[in-house]
């Protein structure tokens, strides 16, 4: 059902009151679950995702889950990253049951697996497996971005060596493809309503660099608008990376203060009071 977002031009405000370059509220926690090697909880607006990482561990019996496996296929010189995504039936506005073999879910799984396999140092763990299970509790757009961010945080918590954060975010454009409006502004961090109507893409970058790890665009958009959208998206990823970094540092500081972990050598410059 198309929505009317043509009011954007009047006040330059989006349906939820944001400016074009504003992220929604991002709230994240790590180490939310005691039993797992790594875990995280991430909210991007109303999109809520939980992630649990097990491993690197010995690969279990082969299951025909068809989940997104990436990296060396376990037997080779590198660990395999296996991602399984469970989209809760109650996550969307109308209750919808998502089967395990859902094609969309499978694609999300393989995208997340490939994105993380590229930044995790999986070559350090031959003949092993990193299991990432993601649970979608609530959906309001930017699902893939939230999944990637949550998985990256959980991998940090699990202590798996990685090159840098993989931070993801979405970008869109203020007018539809059909409007063919050359002067359309790019938008940052689409919510569900905007995602339904406007062209959008998901981009993930590696750390503070401009290196793009994931770029997914599933809607029709004029190629002239793509560059602007990508630039805004990459800029958003940097903001997201800052947020993720703050979450990890905050948790680390608290753990040092509580005495859960000893203050390491590299932490001297960290301001622990």
């Amino acid at each position: 059902m198309p929505l009317d977002t043509s009011t954007y031009n009047l006040a330059l405000l989006r349906v939820d009151g944001r400016r074009w370059n504003e992220l929604r509220r991002v709230h994240a926690q790590i180490r939310t679950q005691a039993a797992a090697d790594g875990s995280s909880y991430l909210e991007m607006g109303h999109t809520k995702v939980m992630c649990v990482v097990t491993g690197p561990s010995e690969p279990g019996p082969r299951r025909g889950t068809g989940g997104g496996g990436a990296g060396g296929a376990g037997a080779g010189g590198a660990a395999e990253v296996v991602v399984s995504i469970v989209i809760a039936g109650f996550s969307s506005v109308d209750r919808k049951r998502h089967g395990r073999g859902d094609k969309r879910t499978l694609e999300l799984q393989s995208t997340v697996a490939n994105a993380l396999a590229a930044s995790l140092h999986i070559h350090l763990f031959p003949h092993s497996q990193v299991n990432i299970s993601l649970h979608v509790l609530s959906q309001d757009g930017s699902l893939l971005a939230a999944l990637i961010n949550a998985a990256a945080l959980a991998c940090v918590d699990a202590g798996i060596p990685m090159t840098d954060y993989v931070a993801a975010c979405t970008a869109g454009s203020t007018s539809t493809y059909a409007a063919n409006d050359e002067g359309a502004d790019p938008l940052l961090d689409l919510n569900h309503q905007e995602e339904q109507e406007l062209p959008g893409l998901t981009v993930a970058t590696l750390g503070e660099s401009d290196r793009v790890v994931v770029l997914v665009c599933e809607s029709r958009v004029q190629v002239s608008r793509l560059e602007g959208m990508l630039a805004v998206g990459v800029d958003g990823c940097k903001q997201v990376r800052e947020i993720l970094d703050r979450v990890v540092r905050e948790k680390g500081r608290r753990m040092v203060q509580e005495g859960t972990v000893e203050k390491g050598i590299g932490l001297n410059e960290m301001d622990v009071d």
Binding site: Q33, A35, A36, M50, V52, A88, G89, F90, R95, H135
Partner: peptide, 9 residues
């Protein structure tokens, strides 16, 4: 509809 999800292994 009651959807029960076990988060942990």
């Amino acid at each position: 509809y009651l959807d029960i999800i076990l988060i942990s292994p």
